Amino acid sequence: MFTYVVRRILQSIPILFVVLTLVFVVVRVLPGDPAVAALGDYASKEAVEALREKMGLNAPLWLQYIRFLGSLARGDLGISAITGYPVAQQVVKVLPHTLELTFCAIVFGYLLGIPLGISSAVKRNTFVDYFNRVFSLLGLSVPAFYLGILLILLFCIQFPLFPVVGAGDFSRPVENLRHLFLPGLTLGLLMTAYVTRMTRSSILDTIREDFVRTAYAKGVAERVVLYKHVLRNAMIPIVTLGGLYAVVLIGSSVMVEIVFSRPGLGKLMVGAIKQRDYTTLQSVMVIYAVIVVMINLAIDLIYGLIDPRIKYD
Rank of each mutant, 00 (worst) to 15 (best):
F135Y: 03
L185W: 03
P163A: 13
G266E: 10
Y146F: 15
P183S: 13
A272V: 07
T186P: 03
L187E: 04
M198A: 02
N176I: 11
V270M: 10
F170T: 13
C156A: 14
R172H: 14
S253D: 12
C156G: 14
H229K: 02
Q158M: 15
A167N: 09
V220Q: 01
Y130K: 11
L249V: 09
N132G: 07
N176E: 12
S261N: 13
I152A: 06
I157F: 14
L150A: 13
V239K: 02
D210K: 10
P173K: 12
D210C: 04
G168W: 06
L241N: 04
R262Q: 12
F211Y: 15
G188T: 02
E222R: 13
R178W: 14
V128K: 11
G168R: 05
G139F: 01
V259E: 02
D129L: 05
L140V: 03
I203G: 03
P263K: 09
G139S: 11
S261T: 10
V270Q: 06
L241K: 03
E222I: 06
S141N: 06
I258W: 07
D210A: 08
L153R: 14
S136F: 04
I250L: 15
Y245E: 07
V142K: 00
Y245W: 14
F260D: 00
V248D: 12
L154H: 10
L268S: 09
I149V: 13
K228I: 06
T240C: 08
S141E: 01
G264C: 08
T199M: 02
G166V: 07
E209C: 05
V224Q: 08
V256A: 06
I149Q: 10
G271E: 04
A215G: 10
G168F: 05
G139P: 06
L231A: 02
M198G: 00
E209D: 12
Y146L: 15
G148C: 08
V225L: 08
S261W: 03
R208V: 08
A167V: 08
L204G: 01
P237V: 00
D169P: 05
R213W: 10
S261L: 09
P143C: 11
S252F: 12
L140I: 02
R178H: 13
V134H: 02
R208E: 11
V212N: 05
V134T: 11
P160Y: 08
A215N: 01
N132C: 10
L190F: 04
V259Y: 05
F181N: 03
L150V: 15
V128G: 03
P160V: 09
Y216P: 00
S252D: 13
I203C: 05
P237E: 06
Y227W: 12
A193M: 02
G251T: 05
T240L: 09
M198H: 00
R232S: 08
L241C: 06
V164I: 15
P143L: 10
N132M: 09
R197Y: 10
R262W: 12
S252H: 11
N233A: 13
I258M: 11
F135E: 01
T214I: 10
T240W: 07
A234G: 05
R172I: 13
T186G: 04
T199R: 00
G184A: 09
F159P: 03
R213Y: 12
T214R: 05
T196R: 01
R232H: 07
K267L: 15
K267P: 03
G168A: 09
T192I: 03
L231V: 02
